[in-house]
Write a protein that binds this DNA or RNA. Structure first.
Length: 283
DNA sequence: ACCCGTGTTCGCTG
DNA sequence: TCAGCGAACACGGG
């Protein structure tokens, strides 16, 4: 379930599990070829012997730096796509379902990158020079790490006729905001998702920035309290634990609006994606 | 059997 | 020239 909060959890997990550890071996299954770059699974051997030094998150991207040899570095650019997960298992245990890449560490732990639909990415980055990647360089400031600059938002949206819900999914504008957080942020801000992006006032955009950040932080807090961040379990990343839906409106078509309960949440489709909102309190 | 899906990219169009 | 649109990717889950 990867938007900014889920990827942030993955980053924290990887730090706790791997920083300081050395890579023994790396393996990928045949279908992983689709998400790998270089595409040949054996190219992953370049990671053998490297030591995890740093894990950063920019939007939905995980940027992992490992040290190798004397002063050398190698990077992993990981994107979870729709169904990607980083999981931890004992090396001797069976791999999880849909495991695509496994990294055996020097402490008996194996990190598995699992991805059912293979929309994710797993790319080796020579010298860990992530800034040299066009897609990474193009990302805007990260909302959680850097905050949201309302004036920049206003400038960037000044000529955009797209509906605001569609516009804020642009990762060069608000990296990490996805389909869930977009609906949630607009609900918290009381803004109709169908409005043209350019029609929003500065005050409305300030409310939207606040709504998005509140929703992101609330979602993170919910993961933590439910144990879905894996912090409470020693080995198993909590995969199957049922956690309460932390969304106010996403996936809640037909349910009463959580604000006034006198109208129901509706589902519409914008740019081929579901949007949830309340007609009464979002203008 | 049918519809839906938390993401991104690509080719086409006006 | 480029913003915007729709298909495509792959594989379940309900």
């Amino acid at each position: 379930m990867p938007e900014l909060p889920e990827v942030e959890v993955a980053a924290r997990n990887l730090r706790r599990w791997a920083i300081g550890r050395r890579v023994r071996t790396v393996q990928a299954d045949a279908r992983a070829r689709r998400i790998l770059r270089p595409a040949a699974p054996r190219a992953l051997a370049a990671l053998a012997g490297a030591r995890f030094e740093d894990v950063r998150r920019r939007g939905k991207n995980l940027l992992v730096t490992l040290t190798k040899g004397r002063g050398g570095h190698i990077g992993i650019w990981s994107h979870l796509g729709m169904t990607g997960k980083w999981l931890r298992r004992r090396t001797r245990d069976a791999p999880p379902r849909f495991a695509r890449v496994r990294i055996d560490l020097d402490d008996g732990v194996t990190l598995h990158y699992a991805d059912m639909r293979l929309f994710g990415r797993f790319r080796l980055v020579p010298d860990a020079r992530f800034e040299s990647l066009a897609d990474i360089a193009a990302l805007g400031p990260d909302p959680l790490n850097d905050g949201i600059d309302v004036d920049r938002l206003k400038d960037r949206l000044a000529r955009t006729r797209l509906p605001i819900k569609v516009a804020i999914l642009d990762q060069t504008l608000l990296p990490g905001v996805g389909n869930i957080q977009a609906s949630e942020g607009l609900f918290r801000a009381g803004i109709d998702p169908r409005r043209a992006a350019k029609s929003l006032s500065r005050a409305e955009l300030a409310r939207l920035a606040r709504g998005l950040l509140d929703s992101i932080r609330y979602t993170l807090k919910t993961f933590k309290q439910s144990g879905a961040d894996g912090a409470g379990s020693d080995i198993e990343y909590v995969e199957e634990r049922r956690i309460a839906n932390p969304s106010l409106v996403y996936g809640r078509a037909g349910e009463p609006c959580p604000r006034h309960k006198r109208d129901t949440i509706v589902r519409i489709v914008q740019a081929q994606r579901a949007t949830f909102f309340c007609r009464k309190c979002q203008r």
